[in-house]
Amino acid sequence: MDDLDDDLRRLFSDDRLELHVTPDATDSVVRGAARRRRRRTAVAGAFGVVALAGVGLGVTQLHLPNPEELAGPLLPIASSTTLTSPPSVTVSTFTSTATVTVDPPVKTGDVSSGKPNPGNTNKASSSNPPPPATPEAQPGRYGSLALGMPEAEALATGSLIEPSSPADPEGRCKAYATKSVPDTNAVIISPVKGIVRITLASYAKTPKNVGAGSTVDAVKTAYANATQSGSNVVVPMAATPKWSYIFESDGATVTTVRMRLADNDCATA
C-alpha cells in the first residue's frame, strides 16, 4: 500500500518530468490568446456570455479548442518581445493601446530599417509629427501588485515575501522581497500611501518592451518623455495616481526597473 504511495510521490517529484520551455513559448501563448479574443469579439457578446458562464462554473466548460486556432499562423505576427524589432502596427494594437496614441507613428518604412527612428531631427522630409512628450496613462500595476495598494491588501496577494524590513531610518515604511525579485527592497510600502515602489523581475519588460538589459538609449527611444537623473532614467506616467518608471542603469545598460509612486513619503523609495 505505502509502497505504491511512495513510488507515486517519488515519480511525480522526478526531475525528468521537467520539460524545456521554448524561447518563444510566452509569445506564442499571448498571440494565441489575442487571436481567441479577437475572434470572440468579432462573433459578438452572446458568445462571451456563454464562455464567461464557463468561467463562473469553475473549469468544466472549457470548450474543445478549435484546431484552426492552434494551427493558426504563429510567425507572421512580429514578436512583441523581440528587442530588435520595432513595434509594428499590428502588435501595437494588442500589446499597448497607449502606444498607438502617444508614440510617434512607426511607419512601415522605418520597420525595415530594424530600429525605430531614434529622434525627430532627420524627419524633415517626412510627414511624421515630432514625438509628443506626453506622459502615458498606463496604470501603476505589476502582476497582482499596484502602486498605492495598502499593505494588508498587498500581503493578501501572496506576492510578497515576509518578513519585511524597515525601509527608512524611522522604520515607518516597510520593504519586502517578492516572489519574482529577491531584492529585500523590491517593494516598499508606506503606512499612509500604500505601495510606493514595485521592482520588476529581471526578465520583465515594460509594455514598450524595455527592461533590465535594454540600453538607456532604447529606453529613451521607447519613452519620449524620459529624463535622465544621475544614472537613472525617469519616465513619468500620467495615470491616477501618478507614478514613474525608474530605469536604474550602469550608465549604458538598464540594470533594474522600478515603478515609483509620485506621491511618495518613503525616503528610500
Binding site: 510566452t26 499571448v30 493601446t97
Partner: peptide, 23 residues
C-alpha cells in the same frame, strides 16, 4: 488603455508559470 497592461500582466504570468505548468 488597460489592454496593454492586461497583456503585459498575462505575459508575465505565462513566463513565470510555464515551466511548472509544463511539468
Amino acid at each position: 488603455g488597460g489592454r496593454a497592461e492586461t497583456v503585459g500582466d498575462f505575459a508575465e504570468f505565462v513566463r513565470m508559470s510555464m515551466p511548472g505548468l509544463l511539468r
